[in-house]
Design a protein around this nucleic acid. Structure first.
Length: 507
RNA sequence: GGUCUGGUGGCCGAGUGGCUAGGCUCAGCUCUGCAAAAGCUGCUACAGCGGUUCGAAUCCGCUCCAGACCUCCA
């Protein structure tokens, strides 16, 4: 991806980037701690099952953030973890972790489960053209660091051991820190609302959370520690890995809205408790949920589906299959901070809208200048379109607005292509650059029907067929001309009659 | 119960004080042998009730509705 100016320069447009910070609940101008470097951490998946579309949305959100920061010229270190230590299953709290349970049910090593679903996760990310992060650390690869962080927290007086488990002393921490600042929760309100969970009687206070849990014999994944043979608490890994790779204070932390509490709140407490760092994360970004009929997409609701089901349409919620790019575009048509409702009509609309966008982009490749003498409309102000495109992205990554701006460019391309609007070569190049930057680099859209470009033989055959049909048309032999068009349509080849002869595309 | 999000036209979905969002659908027109594509035009909006204001979808208050989260559960 090229930066707008020289390879090492930060774009002038970067100065106006504003991010909706969920910590302050305000849009704030983005100022990196150590420009041109930017550190970003995003909570990755727990790899105990296939990811579904709701998960994809979160990673897509941060893919666009990552892409835009790169585009602006920042040197981004993007860390996205893999949670490969299972934590407790569901509400039932049967004392078994998710990965361990899956391993037992399928008679696999826990690490086989981890590998299988990590591979699946990577496949899905590729399918949706989501860029890999700079570092993808795993929880199990950082047990030593986690134990070390727990020790620091204990030393600082914010952690205590009970029966081989270690808990975070929330009340102690809250004496000097604002626990609940991110989620807006008050510890007095939290007090009576905690669920009855394993080990609750070991805690000094029900609101304390686990840093280390002693494992019983049935627990498949366990490690030695100064306190017991056991496993780390869920919130700890992200604190440890973000600190290790990005430092005690870094620029952006992202994740799904559902992780705000307790996960991210606890992360902040752990970081502060261990390092005394006042401001571990400068900008918190939370992606909102994908809903189906107004309900959060989740496995337990049975309303989530896998990419395979999506493409084949083989799911009770899907009327037909949709391509990954259609889904990517559909998601980008909503802002990441709002819920997005999944429905067949909405996806079909996205499919058609994307097709229009991509067709114009394709047209642009062979667009020729149109003189102002022959055109009814004056040349477009591409510079202005580009300005609005940057303004949209700078306004908290407003991809729906960016897409609306791109449709202005689509209109220009179509008008020029039909000879209605004037444009010079420079204008065409500006438009090409616009699509390259915003559609390809930033939104990550790509043509899916590349095989339709055809080889030489196909092109030759089509040229012959079109020539025959053109002759039929010249002879006003409409029956033959229509027959050719209809039969080709049945084969998935669409003929469009333009001013300069017919063109063709594959479905 | 608490916390946090939201409630926008036929559908999806932007927009935080006055200026066209956009996409899809539908209707009409232009172009076209017809069709498709494209362009143009039109259509029905801002949950409700009060308030602030010259002016509110946009600010404030209340009500109603929906969703998410509430300690180890994306």
């Amino acid at each position: 991806m090229d930066a707008p100016h020289s390879p090492n320069a930060i774009s002038d447009f970067a100065a106006n980037l504003h991010i909706g910070n969920s910590l302050s609940r305000k849009k704030e101008r983005f100022e990196p701690l150590n420009a041109p470097y930017v550190g970003m951490y995003v909570c990755g998946p727990t790899v105990y099952s296939n990811v579904h579309l709701g998960n994809v949305r979160t990673f897509l959100t941060f893919d666009v953030v990552f892409r835009y920061l790169l585009h602006l010229g920042y040197k981004v270190r993007y860390v996205r973890n893999i949670t490969d230590v299972g934590h407790l299953t569901g509400d039932s709290d049967d004392g078994e972790d998710k990965i361990g349970k899956k391993a037992r049910l399928e008679n696999l090593e826990p690490m086989e489960v981890v590998q299988r679903y990590t591979n699946d996760f990577h496949d899905v990310m590729r399918m949706f053209n989501i860029l890999p992060p700079s570092i993808e650390p795993t929880a199990t690869g950082h047990i030593v660091e986690q134990i070390d962080m727990i020790s620091k927290i204990i030393e600082n007086g914010y952690g205590y051991e009970a029966n081989g488990s270690v808990y975070f002393d929330v009340r102690k921490f809250a004496e000097t820190h604002d626990y609940g600042a991110l989620s807006g929760r008050r510890i007095d309100e939290l007090q009576n609302q905690t669920r009855a969970l394993d080990g609750q009687d070991e805690k000094r206070d029900p609101i304390d959370f686990a840093l280390w849990k002693k494992a019983d014999d049935s627990h498949l994944m366990q490690w030695p520690s100064p306190w017991s043979v056991g496993f780390p608490g869920w919130h700890l890994e992200c604190s440890v890995m973000s600190t290790k790779y990005l430092g005690q204070s870094f620029d952006i932390h992202g994740g799904g809205m559902d992780l705000k509490f307790p996960h991210h709140e606890c992360e902040i407490a752990q970081n502060m408790g261990a390092h005394g760092q006042a401001d571990p994360v400068r900008y918190w970004i939370h992606g909102n949920m994908l809903t189906v009929n107004g309900r959060k997409m989740s496995k337990s609701e049975g309303n989530g589906f896998t990419p395979d089901e999506l493409i084949t349409g083989n799911h009770k919620l899907l009327e037909k299959g949709y391509s990954p790019m259609t889904v990517r575009f559909f998601m980008l048509q909503g802002h990441y901070a709002g819920t997005l409702d999944f429905s067949n009509p909405a996806l079909q609309a996205a499919e058609k809208g994307l097709e229009r966008l991509m067709s114009a982009w394709r047209l642009l490749e062979d667009l020729k200048p149109v003189s102002s003498d022959s055109a009814q409309e004056a040349a477009p102000d591409v510079e202005d379109i580009q300005k609005r495109a940057y303004a949209a992205m700078n306004d908290d990554f407003n991809t729906p607005m960016l897409i609306a701006v791109l449709y202005d460019a689509v209109k220009v391309v179509n008008s020029v292509a039909s000879g209605r609007m004037a444009i010079d070569m420079e204008g065409i190049q500006s438009l090409q650059s616009l699509f390259e930057r915003f559609a390809k680099d930033i939104l990550g859209l790509q043509h899916e029907d590349t095989q339709a470009a055809g080889d030489d033989r196909t092109d030759g055959l089509m040229a012959v067929i079109c020539a025959l049909r053109a002759e039929a048309k010249t002879n006003k032999d409409w029956a033959t001309a229509d027959l050719i068009r209809d039969r080709l349509a049945e084969l998935g080849v669409n003929i469009k009659d333009g001013k300069d002869g017919a063109s063709w595309t594959f479905d």
